[in-house]
Every structure is written in C-alpha cells, then in structure tokens.
C-alpha cells in the first residue's frame, strides 16, 4: 500500500451511470489484478474503495458506477485535478491457479477488475474465456476492449437485447474451463456457485471503514475463520466461502 497523489488524465461517462477515470502518478504499489484503490474526496469523510480496471506504465484506470453522493462527486471531477489515493490494497486474484483455460465471469460494475486480470492471464500464456453480464444493451461497456484481448467473449443481457438472453450462468452452460474468476453482485455469486464446476475465486464488495485492515468494518466469516474483505480479501477462494452465510 502506498499513499499517492494521482492526477486525473480523463474522467468520462462510458455507459448510463458508469464512468471511466484514468489516474496518473506513482501506482507502483499495484502488483496484482483484483486489488483496489481507496480515494479521498473533498467533502467526504471516508475514502471510496474502487477496484483497479487496468494498471500499466504509471497509469491506473478505474471504472465506477454512481451509486451515491461520493461517486456522484467523483463523476464531476475534471482532467488535471489531483486526488489523494491509497494504492495497491487487497490481496488480488491469484493467477497461479488458473490452469490452461480459465473462465472470467463478470456482472455489471463487477466487470472492471476482470479486464486487468484478463490481460495478466493472457500475458502468462493462458487461453482465456470471458462472460460479461448486463441487464440490457445500453449498459454494455468494456466489451470491445475484451474482444481485443481474446476471441472468446460472451455477452449476456437479462432482457435479451444483446448477446445471450439471460444471466451469466446461461452462458456458462457447455463451456469448458480449468478454473474460474468472478466479480459481481451477490445473487450472481450464488448462481455461479450452483452452476460452476471446479474451483475458482470470487471478489467481494463490502462497506469499508479504512480499506487497509485496521478497523474490522468489513469482516466476514469464512471456513478458515474471520477475514477482512479489505485486507485478507477482496478475493476469496470458492472453498473458503461459507455459502450459507452470504
């Protein structure tokens, strides 16, 4: 973890209520996909934890949805403004377990961290498949970027307005994969847990106090005892999750 002052290179809307922000500066503390940053915003007491969508050459990209006053404020920030950011938080995804052909499954604003993961897995020579789940066509983002990385991209929409009609689990049927990585809403996690074969990793979201393991604000129970989503997570292994608790 590092406390960095980062400059906003761009901050633009890419889908309804969804924004992409590129930050420039010392982002060297990010060493794994699936990690997050914690942003201090003027006028707000607590920081905003946002997952890293990409991190390369001193540039860090986040994609976030405006869900409250903090993210609304974030969406109004302009190019050139600076932010106080804690960089490189959380355990991130472990790519060493992926096998030859991992499957990435993202739902809505859970998709961004999978982009960085996809790049990393491909650079490690893996044959990656990706399922991107949205509610409807207008909400789709990052599809083109994923298609530039791998030909095996499957889009689902709940209303059928684009790609496969239904949920990410409908796209999983018939796919073969050695391991899976996922990020998205809790109902999607439960559905994936019912559908998926083999092992995988889930990236969780929780309201946080600090973001770096000090306050115990985001604790959860796991098979191996209590874990902090911010420090011991946000990525948990399928086998350690107490499914009856979530």
């Amino acid at each position: 973890m590092k406390d960095s002052i980062l400059k906003i290179e761009c901050n633009q809307k890419i889908a309804p209520d969804v924004y992409k922000m590129v930050l420039v500066g010392d982002v060297s503390a990010v060493d794994k996909p699936g990690q997050f940053i914690d942003i201090k915003l003027d006028g707000f007491y607590l920081r905003r934890p946002i997952s890293v969508c990409d991190c390369e050459d001193g540039k860090l990209t986040v994609i976030y949805k405006t869900v409250g006053e903090g993210t609304e404020k974030m969406s109004t920030l302009s190019q050139g403004e600076t932010l106080d950011v804690l960089v490189g938080l959380g355990n991130g995804y472990d790519t060493s377990k992926s096998g030859e052909s991992p499957l990435l499954i993202g739902g809505g604003v859970g998709i961004p961290p999978l982009y960085f993961l996809c790049k990393r897995l491909i650079s490690e020579g893996k044959k990656v498949s990706v399922i991107l789940g949205f509610n409807k066509k207008e909400e789709i983002f990052l599809e083109d970027e994923f298609r530039k990385l791998t030909p095996r991209v499957y889009v689902t929409t709940a209303d059928g307005s684009e790609g496969i009609r239904g949920f990410v689990t409908d796209a999983m049927k018939g796919l073969e994969y050695t391991y899976f990585y996922t990020c998205g809403p809790m109902p999607m996690f439960r559905a994936i847990n019912r559908t998926a074969t083999g092992s995988g990793q889930f990236s969780f979201e929780e309201r946080m106090g600090c973001g770096f393991g000090a306050c115990m604000g985001c604790s959860c129970k796991t098979v191996g005892g209590y874990k902090r989503i911010c420090k011991d997570g946000p990525v948990l292994q399928r086998e350690e999750i107490l499914w009856e608790e979530i």
């Binding site: 106090g209 604000g217 604790s219």
Partner: peptide
C-alpha cells in the same frame, strides 16, 4: 453483522 460502517458529515459510525 455487516454493514458495520456508515459515513456522516465529518465523521463515521461503526458497529464492529
């Protein structure tokens, strides 16, 4: 149980 944290103006609420 979580959520255990809420933000307020110039402060926070915790129920750890």
């Amino acid at each position: 149980p979580t959520p255990r944290i809420a933000e307020c103006a110039e402060g926070m609420i915790n129920a750890v």
